[in-house]
Every structure is written in structure tokens, then in C-alpha cells.
Nucleic acid binder design. Sequence first.
DNA 1: TAGATTGTTAATCGATTAACAATC
DNA 2: TAGATTGTTAATCGATTAACAATC
Lengths: 230, 230
Amino acid sequence: MLKANSRVSPFVVERLTKYYMYLRMISSSTTGQWISSKEIAAALELTSSTVRQDISYLSEYKGISKRGYHINDLVSTLEAVIGISTPCSAVIIGAGNFGRALLLHQEFRKQGFVITSIFDANPQLIGTKIDDYTIQCISELSAVIQKQAITVGIVAVPAEAAQDVADKLVTAGVTGILNLSVTMLHVPEYVALVNSRIIIDLMKLSFQITSIKNNGNNILSADEGRSYGN
Amino acid sequence: MLKANSRVSPFVVERLTKYYMYLRMISSSTTGQWISSKEIAAALELTSSTVRQDISYLSEYKGISKRGYHINDLVSTLEAVIGISTPCSAVIIGAGNFGRALLLHQEFRKQGFVITSIFDANPQLIGTKIDDYTIQCISELSAVIQKQAITVGIVAVPAEAAQDVADKLVTAGVTGILNLSVTMLHVPEYVALVNSRIIIDLMKLSFQITSIKNNGNNILSADEGRSYGN
DNA sequence: TAGATTGTTAATCGATTAACAATC
DNA sequence: TAGATTGTTAATCGATTAACAATC
């Protein structure tokens, strides 16, 4: 799906996912079927060069001179490359506020992540229900992962417990981990790891606010860190 | 607090916040008072050069040859630069699962973000309670922000409504916005904006999983995107 | 003192952008 | 056909790293 032996940078990966989100968003509303690199770039505050180069990583996809990219085709190509098309099963570890919110978050299922179970270590929570889910004891984690062939673990436990949970997940055989805890997790390189820490983002916000206050303007050069992504 | 007229890149900002999180974590447990750039680098999977150069942006702080950095001093310096030391008041717009989870998330208060109110547009929700908070109607947003001198808005509404909410926040006078919706928000440059979209992160995870499956290894070069940050 | 570690300058590396021939 | 837009190569820009004199 990606050009043979091309190793893409995390920057490219991030942008490709944004193209996907953006194109899917406009594909429902827009009248035209085609979009140019220039238009995508304008919407996402990038240059058209960057957009064209990113899209050129997709080996099975070509734009057409003068017309641009066929929106629906590009969406399906990105869907395949990102792997949205094959739904994968996930479990959440940690039934705190975050874990609960994610469990109930509709968007996850839409993106192809089916959450099958939620675990916690707190005996008081085990056996209680959230929606249709019964909170299970973390001691059952490995067994459930193996029996149900779960591929993704979402780590929503306090920092102290996070590495331990990650080790259990890896041993049980997940292929990806979404880390919501504020720790650095160490996992073998054959396991995908993405860190998503809202606390870090809060601090970045705080930093920007502080520097705007002190300098009268945003210390971040140009519009970086302020656009669609950051 | 930062060296005069130095514009730091978003990369530096991100790492500075990580140094802060890491040092605060170890400051409670560690026995020694000092830490070297080499040790910080090892913990966060960076080079010591990067760490030293980042820290050198902090005008009021100097390390000491042969000893390194005084942990507590560095923590307080970073606290001041990031602006953690001055708590700021925030409101949440959107009382869906995400909004609720954030409202109840203890860590926010610890980081100096005091959430004073939560808003929603859905008439059925308005007036109902979450913990001690009563969900308010979004039509009251501007008045509340101005009366209570709120400085941060946390946007947790669906994509379609996000820009509208952001405009209201800006007009009402917030200085920072944390965007949790999957849209690109446009705000004037004197307003700090950080995007924190778990859906994008989920897709990055999906992408990595897919490429590990296809290539037998992680397509992301080296350990990038897999460490403390990404 | 000797040696470890800093702060900073210069070199390297890699991401982004400009440019342009190919083409629909 | 003329002109818009692609895919790709080469140039630029900026982030990271190496190197090292200063120093505790």
C-alpha cells in the first residue's frame, strides 16, 4: 500500500491521517468529486508541495494532471493504508473517568476500534457496570486478550501502574498500545505505541498562554503548533 | 523567563513540558538532588545535547559543571516558564462523554486548571447535574466568561459546532483554547491554541499496526514516534 | 589537581519547499 | 491547443547532534 521500502516519518503519518479526516469530512458536503493539492493545503495550512509529496508515498494512488485527486478514491486508499477498513478489537485498562469516557465514546467504533472489555484493579469497582460493560479484574486481562484475540490495549491507569500494564499487554500478545498515562512506556519494536496525553497538551497550552502574556505575542514561530495539527 | 527574544520551536516547548513532568515524577522518589543532561536524556530517549540546548533557553537557570542541574530548582523554573504556578480558570463546552470525563479529571486541578462551568446546547441536558456542576446553556457562555474572567475554553463539541464555539470564546475574551474536536480551528494569533485529538492518535496507532503487519516491522524510522513523546 | 559536565558554536541530518518537465 | 496540476528532483530551511573550551 505504501511504496516499497519507503520509511515514512511520523510527520508524514500524522498528515496522512489529517488528509483522511479532512477528505472524509468534505466528501459528504462537497459538490465536486475532485480536489487539488492546493485546496487540501489551503484547508490544512500546508504547502501544496508537502501535500503532493505525502500523497506520492501511496503507491497505489495517482492524481490526475489538471484535475487533482479523486476524493473518494483517495479516501479509500488512505483508509486501507491507515488500516481503518479492518476493524480491530481493543480493551481499556483503567475504569477511572478517562477510561469510562473512552468506553462510551462513539467515535471509536466509527473508526473501527471495537472495545470489548474494561479492566480495573480496584476491588470496589470490579463487577460494577458501565453501560453494558462489567468492569473486570485486571488479573483476567491476559486470559481475555488471548481468548478473544484482542489486538489493542488502551492504557488509562495512573503513571505508577502503566509500565506493568503495558508489559502484561505485550506478553498477552497485543500489537498496539494507546498510552494515555503520563509515563514513557517501553515496548518491543514490533508493538505499535502511540502516546496521547492530554496533560502534556494542557501544559503546552499553559506555556503558550504564559508567553503570550509576557511577550504580547505567541512565542511559537509563525503559525506552527496552532494549525489543524500541532 | 525565557531568554530575551528567543522564539522557541514547538519541539522545544513539548520537550520542556516533558522535562517538567519527568523531573516532578522523580523528585519525590529520587535520593539525589542533582541530575545531569545525560540522565534526563537517557530517561526520555533524547541526546544530552538536545537536553542542554533546551534548558539553555531558560534565561534564569544555569546548571553547574560536574554536578548537573538541581532538580527542584529546575522544576520551579519550568513551572514558572510554563505558567503552572499561576492557576487559571477554564470552562468546558460540550457535556458529552469527553466533556464529562475532563470535568471530573482530577489531574486538571493539580496542573492549575480550575474548571468552573460546563456548557451544552442540548436543552435536555441543561439544568442537569454532573457532580457539583450544573450544565449551563451555551447562550450564557459569553456572560459567564466575562463575569468570571475565564481564561481558557475547552472545546469538546462535535466538529460542526467547534468553530462557532471557538469564535464565541475568542469574542468573550479567553486567552487560550484546548481543542478536542476533530476540526481545524481558526483563532487570532493572540489566542493560544492546542489541538488534542485522540481520534487522530487512534489513526496513527492504526497506521503503525497496519504497517507492522505488512512489513514485519514498524515503518516509523528508528524509535521516533514510539518514545515518551511522539 | 583531574575529570565530569556544562553552555555554546559549528556540522550534520532530515523535513519542507521551490521549481519544473510531464501530462491530461 | 493552452493552461492547470501532477510527480519528482534539487535547494532551502531548521532541528538535532557532535565537538570542545570553560569551569566547578
